[in-house]
Design a protein around this nucleic acid. Structure first.
Length: 484
DNA sequence: TTTTGAGTTGTTCGA
DNA sequence: GTCGAACAACTCAAA
């Protein structure tokens, strides 16, 4: 106490604790700190120690490294730096706050159960030291608890949720990056928890499997803005019509930026609206609505996560607990490696492995294939995506896998079994997407590209089908029927 | 409390 | 080739 009072209160700094909000613009915690007129200490805590924390997957760790590096660069260009720490947040944060004589700690909220519990613990610890703790919403358009049914409960149907969300009003305008930041230069290297970013070993060393990721992505806030500008300029207009075709890059490709908060949903919402409203035709408005409803699905996933903390491991519909899943490591491995013998599935899995990302339409096809054709537990798919996706998100990933399995909210009906040949023919008609990822099929004609087993003889090294569609489909229907 | 309309993304079969 | 029905009822959300 005495130490804290030995300097004038107005000289005490504010700590901004960065988490899934690795950006300077539309960052409410940072803006509030800037408006306070106090010196700002920017920190990041890599916490894999706290009870229940799910370790990030490999691709997400790779993204995190780049995003932290970029944030540090941005802060240094404004005279500060990012102080990086390792340890349990409820230990690290209060200790750092005390040692730096901070008046307050600000952060933007997280919504997973473990994260919320940690943040509560940090808040409680700070309170006992009379240090202010304030949290903000920088991650979502609507707070998950603010959207309620007429009877006060959470929603379990998307369209009703999204209608109700709209009725609470338009999402708020994004904040500009603070024009002036009085940043601390201290790196707190004398703290036992302080580390260099490299010490976190977030990037792979040997083997270095991240080459494909590096050539696919520019991590961080500037990369996010560039990708947003490109998307709005080139693809928003046709988004509704072309987003389902994986060989057109007509999706936004903003998911990893959203995951780590290199950009915020408010920024996307309003930037898209501005571009659509500036356009003369009405076509963009259909696309605008479609794009905004995709942000709506992200909101809905967080709504589900908030109200169902175990969404990544527990069936939302518990009748699925008795589902007769098959445990077949070889078949799972074939799916993971893109060796199922179905080109659209294998192309997707190899795009994922190479770039850390997969087109949305293809995600549905490969997920349906794992769950229904192979009858493998959706959690196995969720875990693989968690490890390999740069956008692996605690809400979206789990909610989407449950949606495909049928065990989730507003889920796909049991009889919806994607036919990988039809899906390929419909959404990749000339096979350009498939050929990009499966060079062994380069010479196959468009008419056979999605069913190469019909060709005379074996096609190079391309594998045989691991299941036959009609048989697998019937097996899935029978299995799902047992759930009653 | 009961009723009613609705529910992201599909496939197959038979006319 | 195209079109509508069947696929199974169930749960949700609001009136």
């Amino acid at each position: 106490m005495a130490a804290e009072r030995s300097i004038p209160d107005s000289k005490r700094p504010i700590i901004v604790w960065f988490r899934d909000d690795l950006r300077l613009s539309d960052n409410p915690a940072l803006s509030a700190a800037a408006n306070s007129g106090r010196k700002i200490i920017c920190i990041f805590v890599h916490d894999e120690e706290s009870e229940g924390m799910r370790p990030l997957g490999g691709a997400a760790r790779w993204w995190l490294h780049g995003a932290l590096q970029e944030l540090d660069d941005d802060l240094r260009s404004r005279g500060g730096l990012l102080s990086v720490h390792r340890g349990s947040a409820p230990t690290v944060i209060p200790q750092l706050a005390t040692n730096s004589k901070a008046a307050a700690v600000y952060w933007n909220r997280r919504y997973g159960a473990v994260e919320r519990r940690l943040d509560e613990a940090v808040k409680a610890a700070l309170k006992t030291q009379q240090i202010e703790a304030r949290s903000f919403n920088g991650h979502l358009l609507y707070e998950p608890w603010s959207i309620k049914t007429k009877s006060g409960g959470p929603f379990r149907v998307f369209s009703a949720f999204w209608r109700a969300a709209h009725e609470t009003g338009e999402p708020g305008q994004p904040l500009s990056a603070p024009s002036y930041l009085d940043l601390s230069r201290r790196s707190y290297e004398n703290e036992s928890t302080a580390v260099e970013l490299a010490d976190l070993a977030l990037e792979p060393a040997s083997p270095d499997w991240a080459g494909g990721l590096r050539s696919s992505w520019r991590r961080g806030e500037a990369g996010a803005q560039a990708q947003l500008d490109f998307f709005l300029e080139e693809h928003l207009k046709e988004y509704a019509d072309l987003r389902d075709f994986p060989d057109r890059s007509a999706t936004s490709r903003l998911s990893p930026y959203l995951r780590f908060g290199n950009i915020s949903p408010r920024q996307l919402w309003h930037a898209a609206e501005a571009v659509a409203n500036a356009s003369a035709t009405s076509k963009p408005h259909r696309s605008l609505e479609k794009f905004q409803s995709e942000l709506g699905w992200r909101e809905f996933s967080y709504h589900l996560l908030y109200h169902n903390p175990e969404i990544a491991t527990q069936n939302l519909q518990n009748k699925f607990d008795v589902m007769p899943w098959r445990a077949d490591a070889d078949v799972l491995r074939a799916w993971q490696l893109g060796k199922t013998g179905y080109p659209i599935v294998d192309a997707g899995m190899r795009e994922l492995w190479t770039t850390g990302w997969m087109h949305n339409r293809v995600r549905m096809v490969v997920a349906s294939f794992l769950i229904k054709h192979l009858l493998i537990d959706w959690r196995q798919g969720e875990a693989w995506f968690w490890d390999t996706l740069v956008d692996a998100d605690p809400a979206n990933n789990a909610a989407s896998w449950q949606w495909v399995a049928g065990s989730g909210a507003d889920a796909a009906p049991y009889f919806r079994v994607f036919n990988p040949v039809l899906q390929g023919e419909k959404f990749d008609p000339d096979g350009r997407y498939v050929k990009r990822w499966l060079p062994e099929l380069a010479d196959v004609s468009p008419s056979a590209i999605h069913c190469p087993w019909q060709l005379e003889g074996k096609v190079g090294s391309y594998p045989e089908r691991i299941v036959e569609h009609n048989r697998a489909r019937q097996r899935a229907l029978d299995a799902f029927k047992t759930l009653g």
